[in-house]
Amino acid sequence: MTHESVPRAETPHELLAAVRELTRKVRAAQRGSWFPLLVFATITLLAIPVYRYAPYLDLFDTCRSRPGHTVCRQPNPTQLAYWTVALMLAYAAIAGFYVRQSRRRGVGTTIRPYVVIGIALAILMAAVSIWMALDPLLPIPVDPFSTDPVEIEVGPRVWLTNALASPTVVIGLALLVLAWVERHWALLAYSLGYLAVVVIMGGQVIHSTSQWWFLPHLLVPAVVLLLGAAAFALFRPAVEVEA
């Protein structure tokens, strides 16, 4: 009489390890961090001609003029319109990319929360910018043409409001959400670094008579985003998910 060995059933620990490994593979397959970074870098670079050549539309009556000189209290509303539309289109492109990727790899996508929150942040940016134009938080100088330095105390409320009105900061906040959605620690670290860069850049006052004075505020974030896109694309793992 012969005895055949019967395969032993997997232990609970082995099953748990298998589930965790499958979960890791699925999350890796769902990731596509390089593409949002590339899209955001593109719209940031495309903003340069808008900042330089778009005519100023004084929709909120913030400009004061004298012969040969005009001072406007708020950024050009054309720039705000550009960023609002560009961010909306960016999230539409990102959503389409993740849907196509999920179909190609045969896994679901969790990009919807990121796209929804990103669009909400873009709308909030526009609303805060308009509110700041109609009801400025900082005092308006009596003589807008004065070159004398004015000491203004900027509190947390002003700092937070200005941050929410900044397109580059809003992009960084959305990247934090993407890192949470993808459970991507490397993207989280990158997003925090990017936010630190744009916040520091936003706090820099550039004294220049050049019409290209804004370039550092756009080129630096764009370069950081391009480098991030290249790094995440270069080091993304080859993903295979078995059913």
Rank of each mutant, 00 (worst) to 15 (best):
L138S: 14
P139W: 07
P141K: 08
V142G: 15
P144F: 14
F145V: 11
S146Q: 09
D148N: 15
P149V: 08
P149C: 03
V150M: 13
V150G: 07
V150S: 12
E151V: 14
I152Q: 11
V154C: 01
V154H: 02
G155W: 05
G155N: 02
P156C: 08
R157S: 14
V158W: 04
W159Q: 11
T161P: 02
T161I: 02
N162L: 14
A163S: 14
A163V: 07
L164I: 06
L164D: 02
A165W: 01
S166F: 04
T168R: 13
T168S: 12
V169K: 01
V169T: 12
V169H: 10
V169F: 14
V170C: 05
I171A: 06
L173E: 02
L175G: 01
L176M: 00
L176W: 03
L176Q: 00
V177M: 03
L178E: 04
A179Y: 04
W180S: 08
W180G: 12
W180I: 12
V181A: 04
V181G: 02
V181P: 02
V181K: 00
R183G: 12
H184G: 00
W185V: 15
A186T: 10
A186M: 13
L187A: 00
L188N: 12
A189L: 15
A189I: 12
S191G: 01
S191L: 02
L192S: 04
G193K: 04
G193N: 09
L195S: 07
L195Q: 05
L195K: 00
A196N: 09
V197G: 01
V198C: 05
V199Y: 10
V199G: 06
I200E: 08
M201P: 01
M201N: 00
G202E: 01
G203E: 03
G203W: 02
Q204N: 14
Q204L: 13
I206N: 09
I206M: 10
H207N: 13
H207V: 14
S208N: 07
S208V: 10
S208M: 11
S208I: 07
T209N: 13
T209C: 05
S210F: 03
Q211G: 14
Q211P: 11
Q211T: 15
W212F: 15
F214G: 08
H217S: 13
H217E: 13
H217A: 15
L218V: 10
L219F: 06
V220R: 02
P221N: 08
P221V: 06
A222R: 01
V223P: 03
L225V: 02
L227F: 06
